[in-house]
Design a protein around this nucleic acid. Sequence first.
DNA 1: CTTAAAACTTGACACTTGTCATTTTTTCAA
DNA 2: TTGAAAAAATGACAAGTGTCAAGTTTTAAG
Lengths: 229, 229
Amino acid sequence: MLDKSHKHVTCSTCMSRSSSLLGGLCSDEVTNLEDHKTCNYYKKSQSLFLEGSFPRGVFCINQGKVKVFKRGDEGKEQIIHIAKEGEMVGFRAMFSGDPYNVAAETLEESNICFIAKDDFLNMMDTNVTLRNGIIKELSKELSDRASFITNMAQKSVRERLAFALILLKGVYEPEPINLSREDMANFVGTATETLIRLLKDFKEEGIIEVHTRKLTILNLDKLVSIAGK
Amino acid sequence: MLDKSHKHVTCSTCMSRSSSLLGGLCSDEVTNLEDHKTCNYYKKSQSLFLEGSFPRGVFCINQGKVKVFKRGDEGKEQIIHIAKEGEMVGFRAMFSGDPYNVAAETLEESNICFIAKDDFLNMMDTNVTLRNGIIKELSKELSDRASFITNMAQKSVRERLAFALILLKGVYEPEPINLSREDMANFVGTATETLIRLLKDFKEEGIIEVHTRKLTILNLDKLVSIAGK
DNA sequence: CTTAAAACTTGACACTTGTCATTTTTTCAA
DNA sequence: TTGAAAAAATGACAAGTGTCAAGTTTTAAG
């Protein structure tokens, strides 16, 4: 349970920042950031931003998890990414000038800071390390999405589920994976019923263990071999 | 038929450049670019770069078309993007320091210039317009790929084909679409046989017209309504 | 603690889509 | 022009996956 009263997270001591894109800031810049950012406690399932709205700044996750998703024609969510502590969310659309083409929502209670667009763009102008970090991050995500597309197009649901569980392990570690069946299905790109059946198979094959919603991976090697390269 | 003897494309008069990311260069920079770039004629199906190799620079398409693709587990290509005149290819991996995670190959004979990595990065350091253009482009592609993923996950092959044909129209205009069935299938993310059957349906429905490999869209509205939003 | 709502699970079934085999057409080089 | 190779097309069939409907379990609010 997060401390709701402790509204303000201090950048200079934020453990999530040091390993993030904002890790390369000098102390002046951290002080400046400190003065300009706001910090908020979010309950589970609260929206950070909606598809179609215009970006006002970036979100830094201090604590918690956020799903980034897009709705298809029939309103079904496709989860593009699940962000955890130390990640920044919502900066892409800021550069293009376009409205968000994805939405973001907390998956659990979270502490998330907010840096206004102008402040962030100013920092990017003056800080080469930050700027290069952002460009690198954008490139890396582009690469991830090329793989995502290829997986969607060519792998079976079983293979994609194995792949997704490996990713989710990285997101939730050292905790067990804790995601609703529907969200998991929307991440894998399948129907909830199909996902449940396949999870059952994995249980019976001794690959995973499930207690209510908490899922633990027992045999990672097996998952890797199912997921393919 | 391109003029193979005319090896050197002049940046200052290149019509493809003016509408590209390099459109914002000042005349000094264009002169500098001119001195540092090389220009090559490519036959159909020639490789620009391979998945796994390290980027040495960026490719500017003066004339022709290039497919950017990734191979899945069984070696099947998934086409991520088809680039035409005026587009730049292969710059993403340059920023991340990682090897290419995609490959690029000409779809037809092409004139393509090459700017070495160092020269390009220098230009980016000194030219704010170019730099912002690149960041914007990366963001835009990220957005496109989120939609691509969602389409893959939620649309039927018929819907995806309609969507793909609309995109391809934009790439080939004012010429008819001219792509092998296999490439088209690898773009849509389906088996070649399935693609052929669906094209046949579209023909019978009067939506498209096909002469050997050249495909013309007769009823764009219908395609749009099939593709969905 | 109780109860309603939400989430999860299971079963039955149909249909889209991929695979394999074969034939036809097109391309392109000799 | 001709022949071989590549590309395109068609048919048959099975498997994977989505949908719908009905049940069960878990969650969370009163």
